[in-house]
Design a protein around this nucleic acid. Structure first.
Ligand SMILES: [Mn+2]
Ligand SMILES: [Mn+2]
Ligand SMILES: [Mn+2]
Ligand SMILES: [Mn+2]
Lengths: 240, 240
DNA sequence: AGCCGACATTAGGGCGGTCTAAATCTCCGG
DNA sequence: CCGGAGATTTAGACCGCCCTAATGTCGGCT
C-alpha cells in the first residue's frame, strides 16, 4: 500500500517513519519475542515474519532511525518505549478483533487469528473503541490472551505451561496459543479451552504423549499441543 | 503492502496481476465513472483517486496487460467483464461493510463511508458471507446504494435525481450519495434519508436553493445537497 | 592460537506505486 | 488548413519492501 490508510490520531506527536502494515508486523514480532525475556535477533525476527535476514536488517535500520527500536549488540534489538506503545496497540487491536469476530460473527476459534492478522492493521481508533464497548471492555480474547488496555501496564506472560504439571495435578487452562490452527481445532473437539480444568495423568516424554482427563474423558496430547496450553496448577499432587 | 494479504479464493482462475488495494481502488473508480455511461478518461480517474495522470497511465497499462480493462481511444478505458466482476466485488464489500458498521456498531451515517473505504480491501470471503448472513442478506446499504449480489446482474443507477422534480411533486428518497460527509450529517438532521417522502415547493435556481417540505417542516436544500439525492417521483403536479 | 561455522551486514537488483518535467498527440477554432 | 490548447504519454527519479550473493564479524572448538 505505501501510505497507511487508517487514520490514527493518537500518534504520539513526532513520528518520522510511516506506521505501515509492515512496520506494525515487525513491531508485533519483536514484541512477541522480547516479551519472553531476551532481546530479539535478526534471524529470529526474520523467521517469525517469513522474510530474509537482509530485509530485517534494512527495516531495523529504518525503525531505529525513527526511534521505534534500540539495537544493542550484533543484531540484537529491543523496543523503545515509543515502539512498545505502538506494539501493544497492534496487539490490542488484534485481540479485540479476535474477540469481536468470535462473539459477534461466530468465527470459529481456529479461524479468528488469520482474520485478525489482516484486519489489525486497518482498524481505526473509532472502530476500536466501538468494538471494545460493544464487547463490554473484555480483558481476554477467545484464546485467553490478555488484551492490552489503552493506557497502563500490560503483563503478557503470567501463566505457567501445562508441561510443568505432574500426575495427579488439577490444571486450570487459562490460555492456548493461537498460532497453530490445526491444534486449536483439535483442542476444541476435546473441549479444552480457557476456563476448563483438566487432570494430569501422565507427563509427556520424548516418545509418549501426555495423558490427561478432561470432563470425564481420557485423552492424549502430543508434545506440540501441550506446549500451547498455559494456565495455573490448582491442586498439586506433589505437595505432600 | 505489496502482496494482498486477504485470501480470496474465487479469484477466477488465471490472474496475472495482484489485486492489491491500489488496483481495487482503480477498479472501483473506473466502475463508478463508467456506470454513468461514457468510458473513463485518464484525467477523470486521476482526479477521483487524487493521483496524477502519469500514475494512472502506468497503472492502466498494467491493468490492460492483465485483462482488467480495455483501452479504446486516447486514454478512454472500459472494464472488461473480468474487471467488472472484481469491481462489483469491491463495491459489494464496501456496501456490506457500511451496512454492518451502521447496524451492528452504530457508526453514524456520515462516518461509515470512510471506514468502509479502508476495510473493503481486507475483508475475506468468509467474513463477507458471515456479515451478509448476519444482516439478512440486505440489498441496500444505509445510503440506499444497491449492494451487488455475489452472482447475477447488478443495476447501479435506477433512480431519478431530485433535481428533476418540480413544485408540488411528492418525491420518495431512495438514495443519497455518500461522498460528502458534511452534507450527510446535515441531511440526517433534516430527517431526509432513504424511505422518506418529501414535498417539493420550489425548484433550485442558479442563485436560490431548493425549498422542500419534509415531515411538516419547511427547509432549503443547497444545489450541492440536492444533487446527492435520488429517488422516485411519487405524484407529479405537472401531470395535469 | 587459529580456524570454522553461524550469524549479521553490505551490495546490488526488482517490483509496485508515486511524482515532476518534457514530449507527443488530438481536436477544435480561426 | 494550420496552430494552439488541453489531454495523454514518455522519461527519469524516488521510496518502501523484498530478494540473492558476497562480505564481515563473532564465538566456540580443536
Ligand atoms: Mn491471534
Ligand atoms: Mn488470540
Ligand atoms: Mn460508501
Ligand atoms: Mn454507501
Amino acid at each position: 500500500m505505501g501510505t497507511p490508510s487508517t487514520l490514527r490520531t493518537e500518534s504520539s506527536a513526532c513520528c518520522r517513519i510511516e506506521l505501515t502494515d509492515t512496520v506494525e508486523d515487525y513491531l508485533k514480532a519483536i514484541f512477541a519475542i522480547t516479551s519472553l525475556g531476551e532481546p530479539a535477533s535478526t534471524s529470529g525476527v526474520a523467521a517469525r515474519l517469513s522474510v530474509t535476514p537482509p530485509s530485517v536488517t534494512a527495516m531495523l535500520h529504518r525503525m531505529r532511525d525513527s526511534g521505534l527500536v534500540a539495537t544493542t549488540t550484533w543484531g540484537h534489538v529491543l523496543l523503545t518505549e515509543h515502539g512498545a506503545v505502538h506494539a501493544r496497540s497492534v496487539v490490542r487491536r488484534h485481540r479485540l478483533l479476535e474477540t469481536f469476530l468470535h462473539r459477534v460473527l461466530g468465527v470459529s476459534w481456529d479461524e479468528v487469528h488469520e482474520e485478525a492478522e489482516v484486519l489489525e492493521h486497518h482498524l481505526s481508533t473509532r472502530l476500536e473503541n466501538l468494538i471494545d464497548a460493544a464487547l463490554g471492555f473484555p480483558d481476554r480474547d477467545p484464546h485467553g490472551d490478555p488484551i492490552p488496555s489503552v493506557r497502563g501496564k500490560h503483563e503478557e506472560h503470567g501463566e505457567t505451561p501445562l508441561a510443568q504439571s505432574g500426575p495427579g495435578d488439577i490444571f486450570l487452562v487459562q490460555r492456548v496459543y493461537d498460532t497453530d490452527s490445526i491444534a486449536l481445532r483439535h483442542l476444541a473437539e476435546l473441549d479444552i479451552r480457557p476456563g476448563v480444568s483438566i487432570e494430569v495423568e501422565r507427563r509427556p516424554s520424548d516418545l509418549a504423549p501426555m495423558w490427561v482427563r478432561v470432563g470425564g474423558e481420557r485423552c492424549s496430547l502430543s508434545c506440540a499441543v501441550v506446549n500451547l496450553i498455559h494456565g495455573r496448577i490448582e491442586s498439586s499432587a506433589a505437595a505432600s
